[in-house]
Simulated assay, not measured.
Amino acid sequence: MPTAPYTDAERNAVYRAIYERRDMRHFRPDPIDPAILERLLHAAHAAPSVGFMQPWRFVRISNLELRKNIHALVDQERVCTAKALNEREDEFMTLKVEGILDCAELWIAALCEAREQHIFGRRTLPEMDLASLSCAIQNMWLAARAEGIGMGWVSLFEPEALKSALAMPEGSHPVAILCLGHVDSFYDKPLLEHQGWAERKNLKALLFDNCWNIPCP
């Protein structure tokens, strides 16, 4: 593998994908080219994983009734989340939080069963399996943006209910519902920021020097 740095154009393309990646909620239904979809899945599978455990599993939802059932699970959790937000309940209910019935492709990202056998890098930090899957999802997200494909990560669901719906084995764990599809345009900033739900924090406030809460110079 060459050690030479990327050209300016190549490097700029990487940063462009990072800064223009968006959690998409609005999709067109037209299908994704199978070759593009395959590239996205290979990008996910190329992610780093602690101890090279590769804990990710991806389930394609091609059955329309199952897709509708998953949407119902998400809508149920949406209502529960709204109630848990107390004074922000009404505000939350106005947000668009998923595109499950609109996107061309629906995938479930999950952790495989029997993960306890993977000890390398996880003896004191067992959650590194989740960190590894998150890297795979991020790889797919960035590749999708580079391909001009929108992707949205939905986490509003009760894991055991989704696990049952997909006949997943004991010890496995669903983590994300991934909506993939063509979009008319990408949001110019995160949708929740655009809708006034939250703002991006200042990076300097998140950087510490040697000790917690000691600002970097």
Results as ranks from 00 to 15, higher is better:
P2G: 10
T3I: 14
P5G: 09
A9K: 04
E10P: 07
E10H: 10
R11H: 12
A13T: 03
V14L: 08
Y15V: 14
R16V: 00
R16F: 10
A17S: 11
I18F: 09
Y19W: 09
E20A: 08
R22S: 11
R28P: 02
P29C: 09
D33W: 01
I36F: 06
L37T: 03
R39I: 00
H45S: 08
A46W: 10
P48E: 05
P48M: 14
V50C: 13
G51F: 04
F52D: 14
F52T: 15
M53T: 11
Q54E: 11
Q54T: 04
P55M: 08
W56A: 15
W56N: 12
F58C: 12
R60F: 10
N63R: 09
N63Y: 04
L64Q: 14
L66R: 03
N69A: 12
A72M: 14
L73G: 07
D75I: 01
E77M: 07
T81M: 10
T81W: 04
D90G: 01
M93E: 06
L95M: 12
E98K: 09
C103P: 02
W107R: 05
W107G: 02
W107E: 08
I108K: 03
A110D: 06
L111D: 03
L111P: 03
A114C: 14
H118L: 09
H118R: 04
I119R: 07
I119N: 01
I119S: 03
I119W: 01
F120E: 10
F120H: 12
R122T: 15
R123M: 14
T124H: 14
L125R: 07
P126T: 08
D129H: 15
L130I: 08
A131M: 01
A131L: 01
S132P: 11
S134M: 03
A136R: 06
N139C: 02
W141I: 00
E147H: 00
V154S: 03
S155I: 00
S155D: 03
L156T: 06
L156D: 10
F157T: 01
E158K: 07
P159F: 06
E160H: 09
A161M: 09
L162T: 05
K163S: 13
L166E: 15
M168Q: 05
P169R: 08
G171K: 15
V175D: 06
A176L: 02
A176P: 01
H182Y: 00
D184E: 11
L192F: 02
Q195C: 00
Q195G: 00
G196I: 09
W197P: 04
E199L: 12
E199Y: 10
K201D: 00
F208K: 07
D209L: 07
D209I: 02
N210V: 11
C211V: 10
